[in-house]
Amino acid sequence: MLGSFVGVLFDGFAYGMLLFLLSVGLSVTLGMMNFVNLAHCSFAMLGGYVTVTLMDRLGWPFFATLPVAFLAAAAASAALERALFRPLYRASDLDQCLLTIGIVFVSVAGAAYVYGTVQQPVQLPDYLRGAVTFGSLRFPVYRLFLIGAALVVTVVLVAALEHTRFGARVRAAVDNQRMARGLGIDVDGVFAVTFALGSGLAGLGGALAIEIVGLDPSFAFTYLIYVIIVVSVGGLASIGGSFVAATLLGISDMAGKYYVPQLGAFLIYLVMVGLLMWRPTGLFGRR
Protein backbone atom coordinates (compact mmCIF):
# COMPACT_ATOMS: atom_id res chain seq x y z
CA MET A 1 0.00 0.00 0.00
CA LEU A 2 2.77 2.39 0.95
CA GLY A 3 4.69 1.20 -2.06
CA SER A 4 1.86 2.09 -4.41
CA PHE A 5 1.49 5.45 -2.68
CA VAL A 6 5.13 6.29 -3.30
CA GLY A 7 4.72 5.06 -6.86
CA VAL A 8 1.72 7.32 -7.44
CA LEU A 9 3.57 10.29 -5.93
CA PHE A 10 6.51 9.67 -8.20
CA ASP A 11 4.37 9.25 -11.33
CA GLY A 12 2.38 12.33 -10.47
CA PHE A 13 5.49 14.37 -9.92
CA ALA A 14 6.95 13.17 -13.21
CA TYR A 15 3.70 13.97 -15.03
CA GLY A 16 3.72 17.38 -13.38
CA MET A 17 7.25 17.97 -14.62
CA LEU A 18 6.12 17.07 -18.11
CA LEU A 19 3.39 19.71 -17.84
CA PHE A 20 5.90 22.15 -16.40
CA LEU A 21 8.37 21.68 -19.24
CA LEU A 22 5.59 22.22 -21.78
CA SER A 23 4.29 25.35 -20.10
CA VAL A 24 7.27 27.13 -18.58
CA GLY A 25 7.87 29.05 -21.79
CA LEU A 26 4.36 30.40 -21.58
CA SER A 27 4.94 31.83 -18.14
CA VAL A 28 7.65 33.86 -19.85
CA THR A 29 5.68 35.08 -22.89
CA LEU A 30 2.19 35.29 -21.40
CA GLY A 31 3.24 35.67 -17.79
CA MET A 32 6.09 38.15 -17.93
CA MET A 33 5.49 39.90 -21.24
CA ASN A 34 1.72 39.85 -20.93
CA PHE A 35 1.31 38.70 -24.52
CA VAL A 36 -1.63 36.32 -25.03
CA ASN A 37 0.36 33.69 -26.82
CA LEU A 38 -2.05 30.91 -27.73
CA ALA A 39 0.47 29.73 -30.32
CA HIS A 40 2.71 28.45 -27.54
CA CYS A 41 2.02 24.83 -28.36
CA SER A 42 2.74 25.48 -32.03
CA PHE A 43 6.31 26.22 -31.01
CA ALA A 44 6.31 23.11 -28.83
CA MET A 45 5.08 21.14 -31.81
CA LEU A 46 7.86 22.59 -33.93
CA GLY A 47 10.40 21.40 -31.37
CA GLY A 48 8.83 17.97 -31.42
CA TYR A 49 8.99 17.70 -35.19
CA VAL A 50 12.59 18.88 -35.23
CA THR A 51 13.56 16.15 -32.78
CA VAL A 52 11.66 13.45 -34.65
CA THR A 53 13.14 14.50 -37.99
CA LEU A 54 16.69 14.56 -36.72
CA MET A 55 16.35 11.26 -34.88
CA ASP A 56 14.24 9.27 -37.26
CA ARG A 57 15.42 10.50 -40.64
CA LEU A 58 18.97 11.64 -39.96
CA GLY A 59 19.86 9.27 -37.15
CA TRP A 60 20.99 11.89 -34.64
CA PRO A 61 21.24 10.88 -30.99
CA PHE A 62 18.31 12.07 -28.87
CA PHE A 63 20.33 14.43 -26.69
CA ALA A 64 21.88 16.20 -29.66
CA THR A 65 18.44 17.04 -31.01
CA LEU A 66 17.31 18.88 -27.87
CA PRO A 67 19.36 22.07 -28.34
CA VAL A 68 18.34 22.14 -31.99
CA ALA A 69 14.69 21.89 -31.00
CA PHE A 70 15.20 24.83 -28.64
CA LEU A 71 17.00 26.92 -31.26
CA ALA A 72 14.57 26.12 -34.06
CA ALA A 73 11.57 27.20 -32.01
CA ALA A 74 13.42 30.27 -30.77
CA ALA A 75 14.44 31.26 -34.29
CA ALA A 76 10.94 30.76 -35.67
CA SER A 77 9.45 32.84 -32.91
CA ALA A 78 12.06 35.57 -33.33
CA ALA A 79 11.04 35.92 -36.95
CA LEU A 80 7.35 35.97 -36.06
CA GLU A 81 7.98 38.39 -33.23
CA ARG A 82 9.62 40.84 -35.58
CA ALA A 83 6.93 40.51 -38.24
CA LEU A 84 3.69 40.00 -36.33
CA PHE A 85 3.89 40.18 -32.57
CA ARG A 86 5.85 43.37 -32.03
CA PRO A 87 3.24 45.66 -33.60
CA LEU A 88 0.68 44.00 -31.34
CA TYR A 89 2.29 44.29 -27.91
CA ARG A 90 -0.01 47.19 -27.14
CA ALA A 91 -3.06 45.87 -28.95
CA SER A 92 -6.01 44.48 -27.03
CA ASP A 93 -5.89 40.98 -25.55
CA LEU A 94 -8.58 39.97 -27.98
CA ASP A 95 -6.55 40.95 -31.02
CA GLN A 96 -3.53 39.08 -29.67
CA CYS A 97 -5.76 36.09 -29.10
CA LEU A 98 -7.08 36.17 -32.67
CA LEU A 99 -3.62 36.60 -34.17
CA THR A 100 -2.08 33.73 -32.28
CA ILE A 101 -5.05 31.45 -32.97
CA GLY A 102 -4.52 32.27 -36.63
CA ILE A 103 -0.91 31.16 -36.24
CA VAL A 104 -2.06 27.92 -34.60
CA PHE A 105 -4.35 27.20 -37.57
CA VAL A 106 -1.57 27.89 -40.03
CA SER A 107 0.91 25.74 -38.10
CA VAL A 108 -1.51 22.81 -37.82
CA ALA A 109 -2.20 22.87 -41.55
CA GLY A 110 1.50 23.36 -42.27
CA ALA A 111 2.51 20.36 -40.15
CA ALA A 112 -0.13 18.21 -41.82
CA TYR A 113 1.13 19.33 -45.22
CA VAL A 114 4.81 18.67 -44.52
CA TYR A 115 4.68 15.62 -42.28
CA GLY A 116 1.29 14.19 -43.13
CA THR A 117 -1.35 13.47 -40.55
CA VAL A 118 0.37 10.34 -39.32
CA GLN A 119 1.43 9.83 -35.74
CA GLN A 120 5.22 10.31 -35.57
CA PRO A 121 7.27 7.45 -34.15
CA VAL A 122 9.49 8.37 -31.21
CA GLN A 123 12.18 5.84 -30.44
CA LEU A 124 14.41 6.63 -27.52
CA PRO A 125 17.85 5.15 -27.02
CA ASP A 126 17.86 2.04 -24.83
CA TYR A 127 19.46 3.75 -21.85
CA LEU A 128 16.37 5.97 -21.50
CA ARG A 129 13.96 3.06 -21.63
CA GLY A 130 13.07 0.61 -18.94
CA ALA A 131 13.14 1.29 -15.24
CA VAL A 132 15.36 1.45 -12.19
CA THR A 133 14.23 -0.98 -9.51
CA PHE A 134 14.46 0.10 -5.90
CA GLY A 135 13.20 -2.57 -3.56
CA SER A 136 9.74 -3.38 -4.85
CA LEU A 137 9.41 -0.01 -6.58
CA ARG A 138 10.11 0.67 -10.23
CA PHE A 139 11.11 4.11 -11.41
CA PRO A 140 10.96 4.45 -15.19
CA VAL A 141 14.21 5.96 -16.43
CA TYR A 142 12.64 8.46 -18.79
CA ARG A 143 10.51 9.89 -16.02
CA LEU A 144 13.55 10.30 -13.81
CA PHE A 145 15.18 12.10 -16.70
CA LEU A 146 12.16 14.39 -17.14
CA ILE A 147 12.29 15.34 -13.48
CA GLY A 148 15.98 16.11 -13.75
CA ALA A 149 15.47 18.19 -16.88
CA ALA A 150 12.67 20.17 -15.24
CA LEU A 151 14.80 20.91 -12.19
CA VAL A 152 17.69 22.09 -14.36
CA VAL A 153 15.43 24.33 -16.42
CA THR A 154 13.91 25.85 -13.28
CA VAL A 155 17.24 26.57 -11.65
CA VAL A 156 18.80 28.03 -14.79
CA LEU A 157 15.77 30.15 -15.57
CA VAL A 158 15.30 31.53 -12.07
CA ALA A 159 19.00 32.28 -11.83
CA ALA A 160 19.04 33.97 -15.23
CA LEU A 161 15.99 36.10 -14.58
CA GLU A 162 16.64 37.00 -10.95
CA HIS A 163 20.39 37.23 -10.70
CA THR A 164 21.83 38.44 -13.99
CA ARG A 165 22.05 41.78 -15.67
CA PHE A 166 19.95 40.47 -18.55
CA GLY A 167 17.29 39.35 -16.10
CA ALA A 168 17.22 42.78 -14.51
CA ARG A 169 16.75 44.38 -17.94
CA VAL A 170 13.92 42.01 -18.76
CA ARG A 171 12.14 42.74 -15.51
CA ALA A 172 12.61 46.46 -16.00
CA ALA A 173 11.39 46.40 -19.59
CA VAL A 174 8.34 44.34 -18.66
CA ASP A 175 7.40 46.39 -15.61
CA ASN A 176 7.74 49.82 -17.14
CA GLN A 177 8.61 50.14 -20.79
CA ARG A 178 8.94 53.91 -20.88
CA MET A 179 11.11 54.11 -17.81
CA ALA A 180 13.30 51.28 -19.12
CA ARG A 181 13.71 53.07 -22.43
CA GLY A 182 14.61 56.22 -20.55
CA LEU A 183 17.35 54.32 -18.76
CA GLY A 184 18.83 53.35 -22.09
CA ILE A 185 17.64 49.78 -22.18
CA ASP A 186 17.05 48.45 -25.67
CA VAL A 187 13.49 47.43 -24.92
CA ASP A 188 12.75 46.06 -28.39
CA GLY A 189 15.86 43.91 -28.25
CA VAL A 190 15.10 42.67 -24.77
CA PHE A 191 11.55 41.79 -25.72
CA ALA A 192 12.72 39.95 -28.83
CA VAL A 193 15.20 37.90 -26.84
CA THR A 194 12.71 37.17 -24.08
CA PHE A 195 10.09 36.06 -26.53
CA ALA A 196 12.59 33.82 -28.29
CA LEU A 197 13.55 32.38 -24.91
CA GLY A 198 9.93 31.56 -24.06
CA SER A 199 9.32 29.91 -27.41
CA GLY A 200 12.63 28.09 -27.30
CA LEU A 201 11.59 26.61 -23.97
CA ALA A 202 8.34 25.55 -25.62
CA GLY A 203 10.35 23.82 -28.34
CA LEU A 204 12.44 22.04 -25.76
CA GLY A 205 9.34 21.03 -23.81
CA GLY A 206 7.75 19.67 -26.96
CA ALA A 207 10.83 17.65 -27.79
CA LEU A 208 10.86 16.16 -24.29
CA ALA A 209 7.11 15.54 -24.13
CA ILE A 210 6.53 13.62 -27.35
CA GLU A 211 7.94 10.38 -25.95
CA ILE A 212 5.01 10.29 -23.55
CA VAL A 213 2.22 12.21 -25.27
CA GLY A 214 3.00 11.48 -28.93
CA LEU A 215 3.10 13.88 -31.85
CA ASP A 216 0.76 14.66 -34.71
CA PRO A 217 -0.48 17.94 -36.23
CA SER A 218 -3.25 18.36 -33.66
CA PHE A 219 -0.61 18.71 -30.93
CA ALA A 220 -0.79 22.51 -31.16
CA PHE A 221 -4.46 22.41 -30.11
CA THR A 222 -4.53 19.45 -27.79
CA TYR A 223 -2.09 20.59 -25.15
CA LEU A 224 -3.04 24.27 -25.21
CA ILE A 225 -5.57 23.78 -22.43
CA TYR A 226 -3.07 22.04 -20.18
CA VAL A 227 -0.38 24.69 -20.49
CA ILE A 228 -2.80 27.53 -19.85
CA ILE A 229 -4.10 25.72 -16.78
CA VAL A 230 -0.59 25.36 -15.37
CA VAL A 231 0.33 28.99 -15.99
CA SER A 232 -2.88 30.42 -14.60
CA VAL A 233 -2.85 28.25 -11.49
CA GLY A 234 0.81 29.02 -10.86
CA GLY A 235 0.33 32.71 -11.23
CA LEU A 236 1.50 34.80 -14.16
CA ALA A 237 5.17 35.66 -14.39
CA SER A 238 6.19 33.18 -11.73
CA ILE A 239 8.50 30.36 -12.78
CA GLY A 240 8.36 28.90 -9.29
CA GLY A 241 4.58 29.21 -9.34
CA SER A 242 4.35 27.19 -12.54
CA PHE A 243 6.62 24.60 -10.97
CA VAL A 244 4.46 24.24 -7.89
CA ALA A 245 1.23 24.33 -9.88
CA ALA A 246 2.45 21.65 -12.28
CA THR A 247 3.50 19.47 -9.35
CA LEU A 248 0.14 19.87 -7.61
CA LEU A 249 -1.85 19.24 -10.78
CA GLY A 250 0.29 16.28 -11.80
CA ILE A 251 0.11 14.55 -8.44
CA SER A 252 -3.59 15.17 -7.87
CA ASP A 253 -4.40 14.01 -11.40
CA MET A 254 -2.37 10.84 -11.03
CA ALA A 255 -3.64 10.08 -7.52
CA GLY A 256 -7.20 10.64 -8.66
CA LYS A 257 -6.81 8.30 -11.60
CA TYR A 258 -5.24 5.65 -9.40
CA TYR A 259 -7.54 5.76 -6.40
CA VAL A 260 -10.81 7.04 -7.91
CA PRO A 261 -10.67 6.25 -11.63
CA GLN A 262 -14.32 7.25 -12.09
CA LEU A 263 -13.27 10.83 -11.43
CA GLY A 264 -10.21 10.56 -13.67
CA ALA A 265 -11.40 12.99 -16.31
CA PHE A 266 -12.75 15.55 -13.89
CA LEU A 267 -9.99 15.89 -11.41
CA ILE A 268 -7.53 18.16 -13.15
CA TYR A 269 -10.31 20.65 -13.91
CA LEU A 270 -11.78 20.45 -10.43
CA VAL A 271 -8.39 21.14 -8.90
CA MET A 272 -7.86 24.06 -11.25
CA VAL A 273 -11.23 25.65 -10.54
CA GLY A 274 -10.80 25.09 -6.81
CA LEU A 275 -7.32 26.58 -6.66
CA LEU A 276 -8.33 29.60 -8.73
CA MET A 277 -11.36 30.25 -6.56
CA TRP A 278 -9.10 30.16 -3.56
CA ARG A 279 -6.39 32.31 -5.14
CA PRO A 280 -7.69 34.12 -8.23
CA THR A 281 -4.26 35.46 -9.17
CA GLY A 282 -2.70 32.04 -8.99
CA LEU A 283 -0.56 30.50 -6.29
CA PHE A 284 2.29 32.95 -6.69
CA GLY A 285 0.66 35.60 -8.83
CA ARG A 286 1.25 39.26 -8.24
CA ARG A 287 -1.46 40.71 -10.43
Partner: peptide, 16 residues
Protein backbone atom coordinates in the same frame (compact mmCIF):
# COMPACT_ATOMS: atom_id res chain seq x y z
CA UNK B 1 -11.36 0.44 -15.58
CA UNK B 2 -12.23 3.18 -18.02
CA UNK B 3 -9.77 5.95 -18.73
CA UNK B 4 -10.65 9.47 -19.88
CA UNK B 5 -10.66 10.01 -23.63
CA UNK B 6 -8.22 12.89 -23.35
CA UNK B 7 -5.51 11.20 -21.35
CA UNK B 8 -1.87 12.00 -21.99
CA UNK B 9 -0.40 9.63 -19.38
CA UNK B 10 -1.54 6.08 -18.69
CA UNK B 11 0.82 5.13 -15.90
CA UNK B 12 -1.75 5.35 -13.07
CA UNK B 13 -4.17 3.04 -14.84
CA UNK B 14 -1.51 0.58 -15.88
CA UNK B 15 -0.21 0.53 -12.31
CA UNK B 16 -3.69 -0.26 -11.05
Amino acid sequence: VRFPVANPDFSAFVQR
